[in-house]
Amino acid sequence: QKVVNPETYIKHPLQNRWALWFFKNDCTFAPLCVFVLISKFDTVEDFWALYNHIQLSSNLMSGCDYSLFKDGIEPMWEDERNRRGGRWLITLSKQQRKSDLDRFWLETLLCLVGEAFDDYSDDVCGAVINVRAKGDKIAIWTTDYENKEAITHIGRVYKERLGVPPKVIIGYQSHADTATKSGSTTKNKFV
């Protein structure tokens, strides 16, 4: 009898189970304007099975979001794990939708499912992509805006993985500040 290498039939488990959510922001009937859970996965193979069968972000209509969060964390500020958290925010110009959006989002997903932030990956709650006519955004959400060590480590690794030039500054903002901001910009807690 032939012995088959287990590598060829056992799926590769991820550290976490993840849930991919979809949100459409411009629906005409507000109560139906909700997050829709697309699917959950906890192996490398199932991640790709999902990723390969959904629309690229650049093909979504304006007003749509994808959110990838650890299973059990809802993709909103109000969730217990997000309430005292914040996000590393990447803002993209309109031109970058063609050149960078899909590439940045995939890289973000790979950082999350691959646990790229070492022990600080425990601070990661998820990531969100907002597709908007005025400019797209991608963010990694972490659980505690006071955990400077985790936030700065995650920010450094993330910036490097995206290939953002050192001279470009990215900011980390608490959800509390974003929720209560008066103008269009939120002050950065870390850069």
């Binding site: 193979e45 790709w48 990723y51 790979l110 499912v113 691959g114 646990e115 790229a116 022990d119």
Partner: peptide, 20 residues
Amino acid sequence: GKRQYNREFLLGFQFMPACI
């Protein structure tokens, strides 16, 4: 330890035939 996968490892599985 954590189950960490680097980007090259993950990308290597993108077009693998699906496990059933």
